[in-house]
Design a protein around this nucleic acid. Structure first.
Length: 505
DNA sequence: TTAGGGTTAG
């Protein structure tokens, strides 16, 4: 960022009583993500241009026919050589906007020589299912059936969307019709159906279906693990344990996944004695716990702020000779940080992980950055952010910035808040999510700059992100205090017309 | 095709 731009930001932010009009424009520029391709390469400027044209034409919530029409009549769009990856990225961009997605898909079909990949077909099915457009989804799948492009992957999307949308009977019907799609009812496809049902808390129905199919299709280890998970999800450990016995009866040995699933359930019930009993049982049975098992237990202990106990579990894992992975180390770093053992966390990050060849990811950096911020060592946090940016191993996400933003608010440095927000948006193309907006609005209100909070509120609405009821109330109170009549009316209007999100938990 | 989430708190 140039010095000039930096100064401009600083100056704008230093005016603590900005007019709404001025700040609105500024914040808009600040936090709205510029549309662009997720990945850039040498030809990025050209493809970015095309991307912007297509997204601009398709992205303002018009009908699918209108999208098709606009794209078909655009000069630049007509010249584009469509790649599979471009269509895929476009569909992904419109994953929450089925009309635009289907419009884009129709246009792509009409382009000379273009044929959809099966991934694009499946993504389209998934988008329609997510929007619960069952008729359109079914119609689309029928077309796919005609083209003989339905795979088990497609079926998985349909089933999971049906079941997730409360239509589990429809998911079962899809299984019954597998033959029509040129697919077979075998253990794999049966497991897919059972897993779908179990994940949607329909373990009883799944059980009934298994009994019905048992004569024709043989269950395998996966089948039983799916049920163990299903019973645990329904908080019915007794049945999960009984499934272990049933599994043995079929000649299958319960594996580390079977036990870990049950351990997770015990953790949720805070039955830690049973957790440790099961750990010993696993060791005795020749299915020793692995990195997933230990991470599960530690995460649960951490949630209860039992950091020392959590560290004892980590020590037990090391003694057992079990190989740690990234998620385990992330959890360990988090635990050490919360236990106030900064040097040890640093040692895991700087020495242990590289020595063992365990890759770091965004979460690893995030835990370290959060740790430094919590202990007022922001310089180190910022250093790490820079290291992350230059390492190219992983990129920052919104969680990377949360603790940094929090620190700025804590010391009243709103100029730095502005700089960080700008960096998030322009440098890393991150878009602010609901929780980030909520957090920022809250803190700006508390810092007595509700003008900024209100601008973020407006921006949130314009991006179709629904504010929480509590956020509206807080902001309303603040703008009233400052006699911001226009804003007061607007917030009251939104509170009446928009279905507000209830507080989490 | 089956198993592991972390946090911006007061």
């Amino acid at each position: 960022m140039s010095r000039l731009v930096q100064n401009r930001i600083a100056n704008t932010w230093l005016r603590l009583k900005p007019s709404i009009a001025l700040s609105s424009v500024f914040i808009k520029n600040l936090t709205t993500v510029p549309e662009q391709l997720p990945e850039t390469n040498d030809e990025s400027s050209q493809s970015e241009k095309i991307w912007n044209v297509i997204v601009g034409k398709a992205g303002d919530r018009v009908s699918e026919d209108e999208v098709f029409h606009r794209l078909s009549n655009d000069e630049l769009c007509n010249k584009v050589t469509l790649s599979d990856s471009l269509v895929h990225k476009l569909l992904h961009r419109f994953r929450d906007d089925w009309k635009s997605a289907i419009g884009v898909l129709k246009w792509a079909e009409s382009c000379k020589g273009h044929k959809h990949s099966s991934e694009c077909y499946d993504l389209a099915v998934d988008i329609l299912g997510k929007a619960k457009k069952w008729d359109r989804m079914t119609e689309f799948v029928e077309r796919m059936r005609g083209d003989k492009v339905v795979t088990l992957n497609t079926i998985a999307k349909i089933m999971r969307r049906f079941a997730g949308g409360g239509e589990w009977e429809e998911a079962v019907k899809v299984f019954d019709r597998l033959g029509e799609f040129g697919l077979v009812k075998d253990t794999e496809s049966m497991n897919l159906l059972l897993d779908t049902l179990c994940k949607e808390k329909r373990v009883e129905q799944a059980r009934a279906i298994l009994l019905e199919l048992k004569g024709h299709i043989t269950p395998d280890v996966y089948t039983f693990n799916i049920f163990i998970h299903g019973w645990c999800k329904a908080n019915r450990v007794e049945e999960a344990l009984w499934t272990i016995q049933e599994m043995k009866g079929h000649g299958f040995r319960p594996c580390v996944i079977s036990y870990t699933t049950i351990i997770r359930c015990y953790c949720q019930q805070s039955e830690f004695i049973k957790v440790y009993e099961m750990l010993s049982e696993m060791e005795a049975n020749g299915s020793p716990p692995n990195s997933v098992t230990y991470t599960t237990i530690m995460s649960s202990l951490n949630a209860q702020k039992e950091f020392e106990e959590s560290l004892r579990v980590a020590a037990r894992m090391k003694r057992s000779g079990c190989v740690p992975d990234t998620l385990f180390n992330n959890c360990l770093i988090h635990t050490l940080a919360r236990a106030g053992k900064l040097e040890e966390a640093e040692r895991v990050f700087r020495v242990e992980m590289p020595e063992l060849g365990v890759l770091v990811n965004t979460s690893t950096y995030n835990s370290m950055i959060a740790m430094y911020c919590h202990h007022d060592e922001e310089e180190k946090a910022v250093e790490l952010l820079k290291e992350m940016e230059s390492s190219k191993v992983c990129n920052p996400d919104v969680h990377t910035y949360h603790p940094l933003l929090r620190s700025c608010f804590k010391r009243g440095d709103v100029v730095e808040v502005g700089r960080l927000l700008k960096e998030m948006v322009t440098k890393h193309h991150l878009s602010l999510d609901e929780s980030t907006y909520t957090f920022l609005i809250q803190r700006f209100c508390r810092a007595n700059i509700c003008e900024w909070a209100y601008c973020l509120f407006e921006e949130m609405i314009s991006q179709d992100i629904t504010p929480r009821h509590k956020t509206c109330l807080l902001l309303l109170e603040e703008v009233k205090k400052k006699n911001m009549h226009e804003a007061t009316e607007r917030i009251e209007h939104i509170m009446k017309t928009v279905k507000l999100t209830a507080p989490v938990k």
